[in-house]
Deep mutational scan, measured.
Amino acid sequence: CHSECLGNCSQPDDPTKCVACRNFYLDGRCVETCPPPYYHFQDWRCVNFSFCQDLHHKCKNSRRQGCHQYVIHNNKCIPECPSGYTMNSSNLLCTPCLGPCPKVCHLLEGEKTIDSVTSAQELRGCTVINGSLIINIRGGNNLAAELEANLGLIEEISGYLKIRRSYALVSLSFFRKLRLIRGETLEIGNYSFYALDNQNLRQLWDWSKHNLTITQGKLFFHYNPKLCLSEIHKMEEVSGTKGRQERNDIALKTNGDQASCENELLKFSYIRTSFDKILLRWEPYWPPDFRDLLGFMLFYKEAPYQNVTEFDGQDACGSNSWTVVDIDPPLRSNDPKSQNHPGWLMRGLKPWTQYAIFVKTLVTFSDERRTYGAKSDIIYVQTDATNPSVPLDPISVSNSSSQIILKWKPPSDPNGNITHYLVFWERQAEDSELFELDYCLKGLKLPSRTWSPPFESEDSQKHNQSEYEDSAGECCSCPKTDSQILKELEESSFRKTFEDYLHNVVFVPRKT
């Protein structure tokens, strides 16, 4: 048989008469490798580009789960590009990614509803959504962080984005990388972005840091009482949809009607710091009717980097990364020049730590249904340095008659930039024990000054392991946590139920 035959053949030295091919099969003959313009397919066939392209389009058009959109890589027609490569849609070739590779997620039936953290986790790592997304989240724990972890990498949506009755959302900033909504599939009414009845939605994105392009379709905003109209108009300008909307697409009466839409800028007039305090004062603000001013709200939190936005980490279910302080308005003076500047002394802060701070007014709604208010920009203030805590785990070892090696770990709280350490030492008198000992005694162990690591005695271990207080009263049991108490109650309830079950099964009433 021919060298490319495997198993047997019907005619000697003829690659077209093989029972099976050793390498690849091409047009009725066995070959060692697939010549151009053919590609290896499933490690035994040679196919042309049209064959591989037909497989790709067949799966793409069917949208069946589990099928493969075949691509070409290293002269092979394979189910998908290997790690580190992405497909070129024009020629199906796998090309190296520039940075992290995109991950295209194809949605069944063309859309997916995100109504819980669990459903959001199914899209973790996706960068391109081939379909439409509907966000409908009523509640949950730590929602802002969970949504950002699972949806934060999405850069492109081919269909539309719909935010509907998501009472738990305060902001859409968890879509931190969303840059493009194509609108290839539109919501009824030709809408590519749809926001309806979101009672706590206050911000779409921080438009000073976020760009969003909507290729096709219109915007729809109705019944978002805490979303200011200025935020919607800003989205029109940034996304390129200005002029597409009709009169009733953006409701003037049901958007922002319960919001404090600040239209003035508060400026800080005085800032002073110490290692654990920050004193702030800002310019006074009074609405047209000074009785509408209820006070100020001061927001602050630790910020290692200057990239904080107002609604980071917030949701309507209680999660809030900001510390909020309510401040009463100052006494009002008739003389504008003698107006008191409101302020606040922030206490209990960490030394040498940068804080993000902003302040906003708290006002009631005027009778004319106009909203007044003022808010400052987010500023960054760093507390002063102070003395560091003591170095940890000092170790001293003498390696000769004239040297001592000293080692330690950095302090747990540096409280500033540590530039150097101060080492103090003092000579001590020799131990009298060394002169009084009889060095001729056998088995004498000389006193040693070398360091030995501390260890816990058996008594201390027994005390720590004991669940009861000892007789001397030195140790006591740790208080039980809520989960331990709940577990004990469940076990007790189970024992009672099981005992009742045994009584009912074992003891049967005697027939009379």
Rank of each mutant, 00 (worst) to 15 (best):
V104S: 07
T113S: 10
T113F: 01
S116F: 01
L123Y: 05
T127W: 15
G131R: 01
S132K: 02
S132M: 01
L133Q: 02
A144H: 15
E146P: 08
G152S: 10
G152I: 01
L153E: 15
S158Y: 13
S158P: 02
G159S: 04
G159L: 01
L161E: 01
K162S: 10
K162T: 04
I163A: 03
S171L: 02
F174N: 03
F175A: 08
K177Y: 11
R179C: 14
G183F: 06
T185V: 13
E187N: 08
I188P: 05
I188D: 12
N190A: 14
N198P: 01
N200F: 07
D206V: 10
H210L: 12
N211L: 09
T213V: 09
T213W: 07
T215Q: 10
G217R: 08
K218Q: 08
K226M: 05
C228E: 04
E231R: 09
E231M: 13
M235R: 03
M235G: 03
V238E: 13
K242A: 07
R244N: 05
Q245H: 14
D249W: 11
A251F: 14
L252V: 11
A259N: 01
S260V: 07
C261E: 04
N263Q: 12
L265C: 07
K267L: 12
F268D: 01
Y270V: 14
S274A: 08
S274R: 13
S274M: 11
S274F: 08
L280C: 14
L280Y: 01
L280I: 12
L280V: 15
E283M: 15
E283H: 10
P288T: 08
D289S: 02
D289P: 01
D292G: 03
L294E: 03
L294F: 04
L294Q: 05
G295S: 03
G295Y: 02
M297F: 00
L298H: 01
Y300P: 01
T309H: 12
G313S: 11
Q314P: 02
G318S: 15
S319V: 13
V324I: 08
P329L: 08
S333T: 09
S338Y: 11
Q339D: 11
Q339K: 13
Q339P: 11
N340Y: 10
N340H: 11
N340A: 12
P342S: 05
L345T: 04
P351T: 12
Q354H: 10
Q354T: 05
V363S: 03
T364L: 03
R369D: 02
R370Q: 04
I379Q: 12
Y380I: 02
V381F: 05
A385R: 09
S389N: 06
D393S: 14
V397H: 15
S400W: 05
S400V: 10
S400R: 14
S402P: 11
Q403C: 09
I404N: 01
I405N: 09
K409Q: 14
P410E: 08
